[in-house]
Each structure stands twice: as C-alpha cells, then as structure tokens.
Nucleic acid binder design. Structure first.
Length: 848
RNA sequence: GGGCGAGUGGCGGAAUGGCAGACGCGCCGGCCUUAGGAGCCGGUGCCGCGAAAGUGGCAUAGGAGUUCGAGUCUCCUCUCGCCCACCA
C-alpha cells in the first residue's frame, strides 16, 4: 500500500520559525537553569572559556561553544545534573583603545557589546545557565579580585618590586604590542619609547613552581602539559661563588654568585659574564673601562627584547677591567658584561665554559679567550684542539684537565666538585626556574583598581575589607591623553590613610585581566554572593570542573594562572581543591578564509548571524562539527554547508513523510536488493543500532565529524526504505526515534520540533526530547550474521568471500583457497603460509 | 636554535598494524519538472588495456627498515603550522 505524497503537501523544514520558537520555550520553562543544590543526580561541571566582549561573536566562538553545548545535552541525557555557565571577560585593553579612539567611555562600549553578544549566544540554542552569568567589569565581581589580592598580600603571595616597563613620554606605560618597529616608537604618537623602572605588584607564582610541575589527577592534553613544564623550566644544578680578585682600583673579595647546571665543567671556566643590569657591574668596573661599560649598559637597556634575545645575533660584551677567582683552582679569570646573560634568570651572572657551552664558545671566539676542554667523550684525546662546544651527554664521559677530579665520570665528578665547594662555603646545590613571578600591575584604567593606599607616614596600607570595592570612577576624562586617567582624577586619587587618617593617595595601577579569569568558574557557583568571593559548600560540591573547553593559545598564561590561583586559594582556606580543571580539551582555531587569524583589521571575520539567517542555527552547529576533527580547526570555508543543510532536510522528510516517494527514484516503493519485509526490518534495526553504537563512542570522544557522518549514513539507508511497505512500521519508527535522539544534542531545535510532532501524532503529552534518556544499543539487533572477508595473496587484495560470522578458521581458510581467482593466482603452488587475521582477513603467502 | 603537531583524491576529511579514500562538497550521467542554482537515483583516486562486463598496475610528502601485511610502528630527509625563543 504505497502512497505517493506530493512534496508540496509536506510542510517544509523551516528553521527560521522553529528555532526562535523553541529557544523562547526553553527560556520560558527555565529548562537550562541548573539547580546547584540538587544532589539527587551526579553533577557535571562543564566550563567553556568565557568570551571577551569585543563586539561581535564570530564563527570561532560557535566553533568552541556549540560542540560544548552538545556535550552538555548529551550528558543530561545520561542523567547528570549539568552546569554550563557563561560570562564575559569584560576588562581589558581593547575596550580602552576603542574608548581612546572614540572618546566614549569603555563601560558603555563594553556593555553594548555584551548585549549584542548575549543575543548572538542565545541564537546558538545553547543551554547556558544565564542566571549564573558573571561580568568581570562589574563591581560585584572585581570587588572580590581586590579582596583576593588583599588575602594574597597577607599571605606573602603578593609583593611590590621595581620592574622596567616600556614608557612613552606622552602616553605613559605601553603594552608590548603597542611598541612598534625596530626603532621602538609609540603606536599612538610615534614618540621614542624608553624603558623606565617602576614599582609594581607581583604575585609569587614561583612559590608553587614545583607543585605546578605535577599534574596529578588531571587529564590534560600532553602538548599543554609539555608547554607548561617547559615554561616553568626547572633546572637542577649548583650555585657557586666566585670571589673578585684584588686589583689597582679595587680591593677584591666581592662575591659573584653564578648558577650552573654543569658543576662538572668548573675547571673549564675561563671567564665570567655579568648581565648589564647586574648590581656589581658599577662597583667592579675599572676607571679606565667605565666609559665603555656605561655606554654598553645604556645601549642594552634600549634594545628591544626581540633584538636582545635574538639567537642569530652576534654575541656582544665588553670587559669591565676586573677579574674573579675560580674557586676550584684559584685561577684569575676576566669579567665581562654581556647582554646574552639575562638579569632575570638564575643570579644574572654566569661562569663561562666555552668548551662546553655554545654561547660561551661563540663569545670566547669573538674575544679570543682561552677554551679548555674538561669533559671528554670516550675515546677523545684530552689535548686535541677544541673545535666547537661539546655539550652532549653520553655515557663514558670523564673529566679531564680537572685537577684531582680528572678521570672521574662527569656526573660523579660534578657532584664531588660541588660537595667540596659546599664544605668551603662557596657553593651549594640549587634549583632554578624559568618561571618568573607574575607581574600583575597595569598602568591602565579599564581594570580592577589595586586596593592599596600610599600614606606619607604609614607607607603601603591595604584598603580595609569594609571599604571594598574600590570603585573604578565612571566619570574620568578620556580625551586628550593616553595614559591612565586615574592619575589625573583627584576624586579617585586623593584619599585618607585608613591607619592614621591623614591625607594619602590611592594606587592607580589596575590588575592584569588574567586575574579575572583565574577564578571566574568558582564565582559562577555563587555569582551573586555578596559576603565573599566563593561559597565553600558550592565549590566543594561542584569543583573541580569536570570538563573545560577552549583554545590552546592559553596554554601557559590563563591555564597556568588558573592552576596557581586554585592552589593559592586552597592554601588560604577558600576552597578544597588542588587543581581547577579535571579534564581539558583544546579545540582548534578557525582561521579566516585567507588562512590568517580572524580579525576586524584583516576584514576576514565570518559573521555567524548571516549564516544562521540563511540556514538556521542547527545547520551552522552541525556544519562546524562536520568540518573536521575538533582539535584541528583550520581556514574557514563555507563550501559544504549546503550538504549539511540538505541532511537536516532529509531527516525532516524521513520523520514527517515515511510513505512519500520521489519520482526521480526508479526503485521507489520497492524493497532494496530483493529483501522481503522481515529482512528489511532486520536491516533497518541493524543499521540503527550499529549507528547508535559508533555514534555513542564518537560523542564520548568528541569526534563530531564522524558522528555526523554516521548519522548521514543512517539517513541514506533509511531513504532506501522510504515509501516501501516497511516504512512507518515498528522497525522504521524505532530507527527514526533513535535518529532523532542521536541528533538531538547536536541539532537541538529540529529534533525537538520533530519529537513534538511525533508525540502530537500519537496524542501523547509533550516532553522535551532533551529530557529523554540516551538510548541503549540492542546488541541482538546490531549483531551481524555474515561477514565479508577480504582475501589477499602476498598482501594484495584478490577476492572477497562472504561467510557466517561464526565460521571455523580452518573452514574460512579452505574457502579462501578455493576461490577461483585465488586458485588461478596460486597456479598449483602450495602456500607457504596462510595468515588468518582473526577471521577479518585472510592473507595467503606464496613464494614465486 | 628548541619543543609540539601535521603532510592522504579537485576540496574538507575517514581508516583498534588487516579491503586506503567512510561521510560531505564539487563534477558527470539519469529521473522528475513549464523551468531548475529545488528534490530524487546512480557514478566519480590516478595510469594502462578493453566496445563493454571487466582487468592489470600505481598510489597516503620523499627514502630506507620492521612485518605475512604499514597511511598507521622505527630511522633519515623535505615541507607546512603552532608555541617557546641566548634560561647558563
């Protein structure tokens, strides 16, 4: 009883009406407001990096957020109480730059952008819990930044120290990217940028260096762990004291401390190099060297970091006209100042061992300094000329030219040398990190004011808790100057000392915006709490975050700061966790069509609104998932979105019109392949349940692209049965039901619509598809009875044979050999070997 | 310079050491249409031979190796991307 339905009679799939309607309905029902107190179900804290309100949501935001929403919906279907919050990283330089340019205050600019982005985020159909929204530029949020800062100050985790900044005489402190060109000009006024030392605030991240190197109990991608590990850069070695030698201008006896990872090479130290900023440079420099040394130090200060740190650059330096004494052999060695030594690493001074360090070797060659081999690989002639630095670590290395230590294996000799220096108080084992303390001061307006007051009599005075928040004034004047307007706002600046009541001034620096993002997920759990930053009962219940999604570009900044904050907050007693994010996934980045990073200035930003208007949110969501592996990203290319849209139309057709046929199909209405109805129903059930099996695995692994492909395959299969005698029957109906359930987390609107219509057709009361349980595979239905086994001869595919799944291996091999094509190729030869790969493949090996 | 990742059809991509190219785009053919930039059905890695059904060879950046069997594992080379870049 095949019915032919004219296509025009079927209501068309029209996302433009369906999607807004369901979004409104979900909001009205409060469907995605998470009851954080519900402990009847296991919790699942799903976090996605909150966006910066730059003005427009672009397709990259969709790329991370819509699959994350699919995870949320999928987990809910497994009975979990899922919390998926959203907020805005609302402080920061772009708002301030826009404000300077337009004369408009950053707050209205930011708030207008947030309003736009809220609407755009809602258009995704994502299940964000807006009730927990956090906006970091709001005093109810940044107040707690201040409060946390004060606790860190009390705990000795925050401190103040001098540090150089890039300084423009007109515009004040500049960020690194605001210094342009090799001659270092200000991006706004073109003035020459200089370095200036300012007192600034730091957080003592280095206190947690060792703990941050451990990733216990968290499941993070290997590349991120490696990057963080390298960033922290733990080096074990020794700190060794080189006393200065007496000379005409100097009595000697100053101690130059160096850090080395190679105490075994100490006898090879033939000179020393101090960083230009090293405090002893001025003191030790001989009068006749002073002019040249001062000039060199001044030049080094003016160089860009990039110039100074460039590996390709020639080594530079000047002798300071003083010597040091090598503590192991009392040899006098000359001291240089050179900018290849960094003031900020180790002790800012090195012992130079040109025979065993490439940089020192290069320097020695340039200045014709002696090179002495002290470590030799097995079989090397001790006295052979040294040609380049030997830095390798091999077994069998031994010390040479090293006094009493000569002949010892290098590692053992190194330990002995260090031990002997330690006895004389001239050395000790030491560990150094590349990780620096976190400079959190910004000489900027649009951020959290640092809550301290400078009093002429009491010095640095923390703002008392009951005077928080220190509000960022909204009335400051932007026009005219680029530096921090707080410095010119007497109403903000002038205050009274909380201790003595005398006149005092506020700190005008603001906090780095990475502070905001270092704890925002704790705040989501009690976004409106006004007597503390976090609710311990809530954080105990909900954290650590079960799954975090976001870009890998945050590997060593945000993701490391967040780990630091968690440990610091734990030690202050605010939370009980060691790590913030149990599992991390880094999706790839969507680039512009030109392969470049999307940005307004490049004009390659892809606007999702237009795509949503053309195809609907479900298509855009699905297309982004279908493009390729989620962790890969790639250049944006719209080609192919039509295919995904067509797929949803086909799903619609299957669900709405089982009995329809298409005039273009010559086999329309007939069961495929001569199947009878029983075989057809079995085939439909098998297809549906096998799809369910692989699709479930794909959801678990975030393999969206193959998940969509499997559903397309199932849809194609079902189309072959559409309009036949089994269409609309029980097997068909089950397959449609499974198809909709499997698609629901990814394409929530169209599946909700079709689900509602199914319920309506059977007069059942409406229940959201998103409240259904994830279906279970019927293994019996999915099981296969026969299998096609490829047969290879010498590894080349030659034939295939269809056999019962349970076939005996011997029988399979017999069948394989009996295939006419195989037999012809064997030409009477006896196989040397028959490989039976678990019944999945047979390979017959025969010698020529 | 170091670290990490990746090189597969015209394109995006798929493939627990076991049929390379699933799925989609594009393209070709057909159906249906007054029409088609809609819909449906079928075909489509490359090179031979063949009228065709077929059939043989070559193919996962290049080269070697391990294996009955390699896109997948090992080594070398090349190219691209990202991150870090004189960290003693």
């Amino acid at each position: 009883m095949t019915q032919t339905t004219e296509r025009t009679r079927i209501e068309r799939y029209d996302p433009a009406t369906i999607e807004p309607r369901w979004q409104a309905r979900w909001a009205e029902l409060g469907a995605y407001h998470t009851d954080l107190h519900d402990d009847s179900r296991p919790k699942f804290y799903l976090l996605t990096m909150y966006p910066y309100p730059s003005g427009d949501l672009h397709i990259g935001h969709w790329y991370i957020k819509t699959p994350t929403d699919a995870i949320a919906r999928y987990r809910r279907m497994h009975g979990l109480n899922v919390f998926l919050p959203i907020g805005f990283d609302a402080f920061g330089l772009p708002a301030e730059n826009a404000a300077i340019k337009s004369g408009q205050h950053p707050r209205p600019w930011t708030m207008a952008n947030i309003e736009t982005m809220r609407r755009q985020l809602r258009s995704m159909g994502a299940t964000f819990d807006w009730a927990s929204e956090v906006v970091t530029a709001d005093p109810s949020y940044y107040r707690w930044n201040q409060w946390l800062f004060l606790r860190f100050l009390e705990a000795g985790l925050a401190y103040r120290a001098m540090s150089p900044v890039d300084w423009c005489p007109n515009d004040g402190t500049l960020a690194r990217e605001q210094v342009e060109g090799v001659d270092r000009r200000c991006w706004r006024c073109g003035a020459k940028v200089e370095k200036r030392d300012l007192e600034q605030w730091f957080l003592r991240t280095t206190r947690y260096a060792d703990e941050l190197l451990r990733f216990d109990g968290i499941d993070w991608p290997e590349p991120i762990r490696v990057q963080q590990t390298n960033w922290i850069g733990r080096s074990e070695g020794g700190e060794i004291v080189f006393p200065t030698a007496p000379s005409d201008h100097h009595p000697g006896g100053d101690q130059i401390r160096v850090f080395t990872t190679r105490p075994d090479t100490l006898f090879g130290a033939t000179f020393m190099v101090l960083a230009p900023e090293h405090p002893l440079v001025a003191k030790l420099t001989a009068p006749d060297r002073r002019a040249e040394v001062d000039a060199y130090v001044a030049r080094a200060r003016d160089k860009t970091d990039i110039e100074r740190l460039s590996v390709d650059r020639d080594k530079s330096g000047v002798p300071i006209g003083a010597d040091a004494i090598n503590p192991v052999n009392d040899e006098r060695i000359p001291i240089f100042v050179g900018d290849y030594v960094l003031a900020t690493y180790g002790t800012g001074a090195i012992m130079a061992v040109p025979a065993h360090d490439e940089r020192d070797y290069e320097f020695a060659m340039k200045f014709r300094l002696p090179v002495r081999r002290v470590v030799a690989a097995e079989g090397t002639d001790d006295e052979a000329a040294v040609d380049g630095a030997y830095v390798a670590h091999t077994t069998g290395e031994r010390l040479v030219n090293s006094g009493p230590y000569s002949g010892l294996p290098a590692d053992e000799g190194g330990r002995a040398i260090l031990a002997s220096l330690a006895e004389r108080g001239l050395g000790r084992p030491s560990v150094t990190y590349r990780l620096r303390d976190w400079l959190i001061s910004r000489q900027r307006y649009w951020g959290t004011p640092i809550p301290v007051i400078y009093c002429p009599s009491d010095g640095i005075v923390p703002v008392p808790d009951d005077q928080l928040p220190v509000l960022l004034p909204d009335t400051v004047d932007y026009r005219g100057r680029g530096d921090n307007p707080l410095r010119h706002d007497p109403a903000f600046l002038e205050t009274t000392c909380p201790k003595c009541g005398g006149p005092a001034q506020r700190e005008t620096d603001t906090l780095d915006t990475f502070i905001d993002s270092s704890w925002y997920w704790y705040r989501y759990l009690s976004a409106n709490k006004d007597d503390g930053p976090v609710d311990r009962a809530m954080t105990d219940r909900w954290t650590p975050v079960d799954q975090y999604t976001g870009g890998a570009e945050h590997a060593v900044m945000h993701l490391l700061y967040s780990r630091f904050f968690t440990k610091a907050m734990r030690d202050i007693g605010l939370i009980g966790e060691d790590e913030p994010f149990k599992r991390l996934f880094n999706q790839g980045q969507i680039l512009g069509a030109d392969g470049e990073r999307m940005s307004k200035s490049r004009g390659n930003v892809q606007d999702p609104d237009e795509l949503v208007r053309r195809y609907g949110a479900d298509t855009v969501r699905l297309f982004l998932m279908f493009m390729g592996p989620w962790d890969q990203g790639g250049p944006w290319n719209e080609r192919g979105i039509g295919g995904v849209n067509r797929f949803l139309h086909r799903v619609w057709t299957l669900a709405m019109d089982a009995h329809g046929t298409e005039p273009g199909d010559p086999d329309a209405g007939r069961l495929p392949g001569g199947e009878d109805e029983a075989a057809a129903e079995a085939a439909i059930r098998a297809a549906a349940h096998r799809t369910l099996r692989v699709v479930t695995a794909d959801y678990e692994a975030f393999h969206w692209n193959t998940m969509v492909a499997r559903l397309m395959e199932l849809t194609n299969t079902l189309f072959h049965y559409r309009g036949t005698s089994v269409a609309g029957g029980p097997a068909w109906d089950e397959a449609i039901r499974l198809l909709l359930l499997m698609l629901a987390p990814a394409a929530p609107h169209v599946t909700e619509e079709l689900w509602a219509r199914r319920l309506e057709a059977t007069s059942d009361p409406w229940v959201s598809i998103h409240e259904q349980s994830w279906p279970e595979v019927d293994e019996a239905a999915a099981a296969e009875e026969t299998r096609e086994v490829p047969i290879q001869v010498n590894g080349k595919l030659r034939d295939k044979v269809t056999v019962p799944v349970a076939i005996e291996p011997a029988e399979l091999e017999r069948l394989a050999l009996a295939q006419p094509r195989v037999a012809a190729l064997l030409a009477g030869r006896t196989p040397e070997r028959v490989v039976n790969a678990g019944g999945r493949l047979v390979n017959i090996v025969v010698r020529d």
